[in-house]
Design a protein around this nucleic acid. Sequence first.
DNA 1: CGTCCTTTGAAGAAG
DNA 2: CTTCTTCAAAGGACG
Length: 442
Amino acid sequence: MIADDDSDEVKVFRREEGDADDDPMGETSEQQLADDKKEAVMEAELDSASGARVGDLKQQESFIKAEPSPSFPLMPGLMTTPFSPSYPMMPIMMPFIMQSPYGLRSPNLMLPMGAALSPSFPMFPTSPFYGAAAAMVAKHQLENAAPLHMRAGPLNPLNHAMRMPSYLPPGMMPHQSSSGEPRRTQGGGKVKKEDHIKKPLNAFMWFMKENRKKLLEEIGNHEKQSAELNKELGKRWHDLPKEEQQKYFEMAKKDREDHKEKYPQWSARENYAVNKKKTKKRRDKSIASENSDQKKCRARFGVNNTEMWCKFCKRKKKCEYATDRAGSSELVESQDGRGTSGASSSSGSPSPNTGSVPPMALPLHQQPPNPHQFMQSMLMQMHLGSAGSLGPSPLASSSSVRSPIDANASDSESDVDDDEEIDPTITQQTHEVIMQESVCTL
DNA sequence: CGTCCTTTGAAGAAG
DNA sequence: CTTCTTCAAAGGACG
C-alpha cells in the first residue's frame, strides 16, 4: 500500500507537470532554456552593476547572525499595543534591510520599510497591525535566514534554478532528482528537510510561534507534550478576541505575500512529497459519523446558514456528518469514497465501502441528528424558547465550541469566510441552541 | 533517524 | 464549485 502510494504520488506529480507545461517538450524547451539563459545574464549584469557580490553573502550572513534578534525592541510590545505606522522602528531595521542577504532589491525586507515610511503603502495602509505584522515577518526572516541555495534574489546564482524551473528537466522539482525522488547530496544522503522551501505560516502558526514559549513558562510544566500544548494553544486561539486574531491573520498574509515575491514559482505542491509518511495522518477524533447517506452541512442547512454548519464545514473541510464510510481512524489515503487522489484511483479498486455501510454504523449516541428531525426539533425549541432543554449534544465538546463571531478572520481577510455573521432574525438564545446542536463537534 | 501527536489555516488536487 | 489532503511549527515519545 505504501509502496503503491509512493509511486502513485510520483505519478500524479509527473503527469501534472507534464500537463502544466502544456507544450510538448522539445524545441520549446530548448528555446525556453535559451531565454532563461539570456535572462540570467541580464540579471547577473544588473547585480554587478549594483555593486552587490555573491561572495559577500557569507559576510552578510555572519552579520545577521551576529545581530541578536532582541534588537527589535518593538517586538515585546506587539502583543498588546496597536502598532503605529510611525513607530520608530526603521532606524533599527535599516541596517538589516540594507545588508539583507536577499539583496537590495528584495522586496521582502523592504516591505516593512514601505509600511512604516510610506503612507500610501498599498497593502494595509490603515491597519494598525500591519506595521507590526511586517516587522514580525521580517524578524522571522532574519532569524531564519534561508540556506544559500534557497535565498531569493538575483544575488544568489543558485536561485536561477529555483526561480526558473525551466532550467530543470520537465517534471523535475527543485528538490527532486530527475527520477522524481528527493534529490540526494553528493554523499548520497537525502537532502535535508530544511532544503526545501517551506510553506508560509498561517495565522495560527504565527500565533503558536509567538505563544508557545509563553505558555510553557506559564504552566511551568515542561512535561507537557508538544501536542498537548498545541491543544491548549488551539483553545486559546479560539478564545482570542477577533482583533487579536486579526493581527495574526495580517502577519500570515504578509508572510504569504513575501513568500510569493520571493519564490514566485513556488507552489505548495512542491512540498507534498517531502514528508511522505505524513500521509498516514488519521482523522480519528472525528467523532463524526460514517454515515455516507448523511448530507453535508451545506446541503443540510443551506449556504446561507453557515452558522449552523459543523466546524469542519465552516473551514471548508470534511463534514462531520458526511465523513468517509471507512470509519476507521486509520489512514486517510484513499479512504474516501471519492477514490480521490491517484493512490486509490490508480489501484483500480473502487471504494469498497461506498454506500455499503448502514446508516447505523455508529453507536446511537454518536449518530448525528437526522436533518429533518433536527430542524423540527430546532423549530420546536425556537418556538418554546427553551434553550436549555435540549441538553448538551453528546457530540459536543465544550472546549472547542466557538462562537461564529470569533471563529475566523475578519472580512478584510479575503480568503477567509466572511459569512460568519449571525442571522439577525435568529435570537442569540436560539443561536446558542443551534450552535450546541449543530456545531456538534467541536 | 524518522514518524507521530496535536492544533488551525492555506493551497492545491480531484471530482 | 465542492470536497478532501497535505503541510506549515514544536518537541517529546516511540519504533
